[in-house]
């Protein structure tokens, strides 16, 4: 039967081993792969300012981006593809709460430049290689929705 010492060795040995594997993989991911998959060369000043605005206003507190955030408002990863730049700018610059079917968004009343920065950020996010996320709806057209 297992002794307490063997159990401790299992715990310490396993932890150290898997922790180092994790560190190695993280290093590889961040230094080799992420710059390519996220097209870091396209991260302009405007994209970074957009990210700061996205952060400052806690957009993730209602929306998801790359599937992460809250589930109160639509996923924003491909929002520029879906809605277009102009639509997104109007929403961000609106002085009244934007409310499709009654669900209110905070009225951010951004300046045109700020809105353009956020749009640039969202466009950049839309081009990241997300391993196929979000998936194409595979039942679209096969199921009547009306």
């Amino acid at each position: 039967m297992l002794t307490k010492n063997q159990a401790r060795t299992f715990f310490l040995g396993g932890t150290v081993l898997f922790f180092f594997i994790f560190l190695g993989l993280s290093w590889h991911t961040l230094s080799q792969e992420v710059p390519k998959q996220t097209h870091e060369e396209n991260m302009t000043e405007s994209v970074i300012r957009g990210k700061e605005l996205f952060d400052k206003n806690n957009c993730m507190g209602c929306h998801t981006i790359m599937g992460e955030g809250a589930y109160y408002a639509p996923e924003l990863t491909k929002v520029i593809d879906r809605k277009g730049e102009e639509y997104c700018k109007i929403v961000l610059m609106s002085k009244e709460p934007w409310q499709p079917r009654g669900r209110k968004m905070v009225a951010y009343a951004m300046t045109e430049k700020e809105a353009e920065d956020v749009v640039a950020f969202l466009k950049w996010v839309g081009e990241i290689d997300l391993n196929g996320f979000p998936p194409e709806p595979d039942l679209k057209g096969k199921v009547p929705t009306e």
Partner: peptide, 24 residues
Amino acid sequence: YVIVGLTFLSGVLGTGHHYYYIGT
């Protein structure tokens, strides 16, 4: 010890389930 050993054995690399679809 056995239980916390299992936690790290699975949990550390299990972080991977957050890295499926975020550009990694």
